[in-house]
Nucleic acid binder design. Structure first.
Lengths: 164, 164
DNA sequence: TTTGATGCAAACGGTTTGCAGAATC
DNA sequence: GATTCTGCAAACCGTTTGCATCAAA
């Protein structure tokens, strides 16, 4: 049940790729086929991908891209703000397209590993208030709520019943 | 400027140690000198310690405890809920005493690495609402707001001015 | 006496890095 | 043609694990 996420709107990937190209140009960095391929995979998927996921996808496509390049490009995307890095306690990082300020956060089931996204404008307001009271200028956030999803909660309850 | 945290109240460590002992007994696990020493260091510090920090502290004290034991004990403390695991994107984990449900969250400066704790009852309320609407039963959370602390914000502004 | 913990060192695994060759501008 | 990237493999480093030994109950 991992990865309950919605696909990005059609055409979104193209727009994001355009932004990426512009950013590269602005920073006088070459736009290589590998960078484009990696960014495209991330932008089209709209899910939380690991570096390994991207390496595999590229291999399936017949474009063998080095693992190092994938890591370097992902770090680049994070640096320029086009990707977000997540750590869901799996022993490795996951990456996700970052469409600017439209932030969302995550509910994570500690039992089955399901990741559910949620959005809360109240949270945005609260963040602003906290930042303000501490004089911080917030750039991003990582909000992760860990617990049992409805399914696992139910099976946990069932276990308790049969145990007696 | 890392580690802007307040010390735990006097006697807190002793209480926590008592809880740890009780938990061990309850689970029929032996209370070893190493476990006690590691837990004590964590409980007395009240800061975010890395496994390495604890190994060093023990070495300074003259009690050479194996690194593996430190990791095993920290994982144990997390499992039983007496410690929290944090990842501040340093390439390693940090651990902190967890005094039950009194949760706090973190502001992290992406420039100097400062970590500032904050508490927000509104956030607790919001968490409950989000969990409720998704049928989740939340056990813990990780809320990290990344940005510039007041000091770094100021020096960033100053740089912009001198740059022109 | 039985059970589980400890400590050492080796293994593990995700990520980074050095460098020769290749692609971009 | 200068600069930066890529790919490979090795290095890195925090963490885990296997196993012989030792301590707690």
């Amino acid at each position: 049940m991992r990865g309950v996420e919605t696909r990005p709107p059609l055409g979104c990937a193209a727009v994001m790729l355009g932004v990426f190209r512009a950013v590269l140009q602005e920073h006088h960095l070459p736009l290589t086929q590998q960078r484009e391929a990696i960014a495209q995979i991330l932008f089209e998927s709209g899910r939380h991908l690991s570096a390994e996921d991207i390496v595999e996808t590229l291999r399936e496509r017949g474009e063998g891209v080095g693992k190092a390049t994938v890591y370097r490009t992902l770090n680049l995307l994070v640096q320029v703000g086009l990707a977000l890095e997540h750590d869901f306690d799996e022993g490795f990082k996951r990456y996700e397209m970052s469409a600017g300020p439209s932030r969302h956060d995550h509910l994570i089931c500690t039992s089955c590993g399901a990741v559910v996204e949620f959005q809360s404008s109240d949270l945005d307001t609260l963040q602003a208030a906290v930042a303000d009271s501490h004089g911080f200028h917030i750039l991003t956030r990582q909000v992760k709520l860990y617990g049992l999803c409805p399914v696992c909660e139910e099976s946990a309850d069932a276990e308790l019943l049969t145990a007696r």
